[in-house]
């Protein structure tokens, strides 16, 4: 699979590693060069330094032939814009994004965006874990 990851954040770098290690073709974009330090040295992926909402940067990354795009920059609105460009302008088959603000999930999943909200996931996880423990006592 050819995959673009927008945002070389800690999550982004972890995703790059997972996909590269399992033999996938990965391009990672970040507007801050320093963030590429999160990658392991010698990581077998292409790094692009640029603004990930800039169509020229996305084209350079190969958005026209990408099988998937995951937007995990630190900014929700940036992720929302990248995902919509990928989905509605370039028809990338699989688009996913991270939303840090739980309330955005309800509003923007209505736009057909596949969102993952770490805060909501964590809270759910604690909640169900605790209830399971309580039930098993």
């Amino acid at each position: 699979m050819f995959l673009i990851i927008a945002g070389c954040t800690q999550v982004g770098a972890l995703l790059v590693k997972k996909f590269v290690d399992t033999g996938h073709n990965v391009v990672v974009i970040d507007r801050d060069k320093g963030n590429f330090d999160y990658l392991e040295t010698g990581c077998n992926c292409l790094m692009i330094h640029g603004m990930p909402i800039d169509e020229d940067v996305l084209k350079e990354a190969g958005i026209e032939r990408a099988d998937a795009l995951i937007a995990v920059t630190a900014e929700d609105n940036m992720n929302i814009m990248i995902s919509q460009i990928a989905k509605h302008l370039y028809h990338v088959p699989h688009v996913m994004m991270q939303a840090n603000h739980p309330e955005r999930q309800a509003v923007l999943s209505a736009k057909g965006l596949h969102m993952i909200c770490p805060i909501a996931l964590t809270a759910d996880h604690f909640y169900t874990s605790l209830l399971q423990k309580e039930n098993s006592i």
Partner: peptide, 16 residues
């Protein structure tokens, strides 16, 4: 001053 924020504000206003 941020294009991504302007887009999201407009989309929320219109769709929501």
């Amino acid at each position: 001053g941020y294009d991504q924020n302007n887009l999201v504000a407009c989309q929320l206003a219109k769709d929501y």
